[in-house]
């Protein structure tokens, strides 16, 4: 029971961090059709900025400032980079963000160096939040969950209850019509891109402190955010939320289970030994393949339900 509850908590909190990371990507992707390969790079920028600002101002001001700066940077990129590339179509945009990801990574290396930063959790948030049986649940993971939920709530309000939210909503399904109605779609694009990158920056502030802040942190989370965006469904924030939780929980529990095909076959009376052909495949444990499961989910989702869990557009 202890193990189950702790694993569930771990899964949910990891899922919520994933959601913070990928919600921005979902917004940008659905709105502008830009598969932003550099999205995880903004996550990294958020972490590095928060570390640097945190040295002077402390963690909590940095928690607000770093995402804002990241968002501003994102908006500038959109205004003076992506917008120019936009007229050459999606492939050009894709290549642009692809190059951007490299540029950002190299710049981070030049500015901050190759080693990992001593970016640590602030003392207030360090320590156990509560103890479940004998395992402690860290405060910072609780904080992570809180921030993610607060973020979900405010983004939801922004999208559903404000004018700009309505325009964004409309642009999700009918971008041309919105433009025809006289809305400044390029500016909305800039706003969405800036907002999306700010969300990634926020995830970076949290993720960088919770895990590690180093130049390859972008590359290591890069692929998983795409999985969330695709599995959740293009343009669906709720879908991204569901998908993040699903992936977080599935991965956490898969790690805990030492099931293998060999074990299953043995249970039904078929013995598998080292001499059996493809033994290395049969003996693979679920825990070993756990990190690959999200990608398996991605492939299956694209085959059987291309629009994702709660997607609105299948194209």
């Amino acid at each position: 029971m202890e193990f189950f509850l702790i694993s569930l908590l771990n899964g949910v909190s990891y899922g919520l961090l994933l959601f913070m990371l990928s919600s921005g990507l979902t917004l940008i992707f659905s709105m502008m059709g830009v598969l932003n390969f550099a999205h995880a790079s903004f996550y990294m920028i958020g972490a590095y900025l928060a570390y640097t600002l945190g040295l002077k101002l402390g963690f909590f001001p940095a928690l607000f400032l770093a995402p804002i700066l990241t968002g501003l940077f994102g908006a500038l990129i959109e205004r003076f980079g992506l917008r120019k590339v936009h007229r050459y179509g999606h492939v050009a945009e894709l290549l642009f963000t692809f190059g951007l990801a490299y540029l950002i990574e190299e710049s981070v290396k030049v500015i901050w160096g190759l080693a990992s930063m001593p970016y640590r959790i602030p003392a207030v948030l360090d320590g156990p939040l509560f103890t479940l049986y004998t395992t402690s649940f860290p405060k910072f993971r609780g904080f992570m969950m809180l921030v993610a939920l607060a973020m979900l709530f405010s983004v939801y309000l922004l999208l559903m209850r404000t004018r700009i939210g309505l325009v964004i909503q409309a642009a999700l399904t009918h971008p041309q019509t919105v433009e025809a109605l006289g809305h400044n779609v390029p500016r909305v694009f800039m706003l969405v891109f800036g907002g999306g990158t700010a969300l990634a920056g926020l995830a970076g502030v949290i993720g960088g402190a919770a895990f590690i802040t180093e130049p390859s942190m972008a590359a290591s989370v890069g692929p998983i955010v795409f999985v969330v965006a695709v599995v959740g469904g293009m343009g669906s924030l709720a879908g991204a939320f569901l998908a993040s939780l699903l992936i977080g929980i599935v991965q956490t529990f898969a790690i805990a289970l030492d099931w293998s095909l060999a074990g299953m076959l043995a249970a039904v009376g078929i013995g598998v030994t080292e001499s059996t052909p493809l033994y290395s495949l049969w003996k693979l444990q679920l825990s070993q393949v756990a990190p690959v499961l999200p990608y398996l989910l991605l492939v299956l989702m694209l085959i059987f339900r291309p629009k994702g869990l709660l997607g609105t557009r299948a194209d």
């Binding site: 702790i6 993971r141 825990s287 990190p291």
Partner: peptide, 21 residues
């Protein structure tokens, strides 16, 4: 005994709860 993928795992909390259990 666990063998996990090289340089891919960010969140080791699930592994740790397994080790603890």
């Amino acid at each position: 005994e666990d063998l996990h993928p090289l340089a891919q795992v960010k969140d080791f909390a699930p592994y740790v709860s397994k080790i603890k259990a």
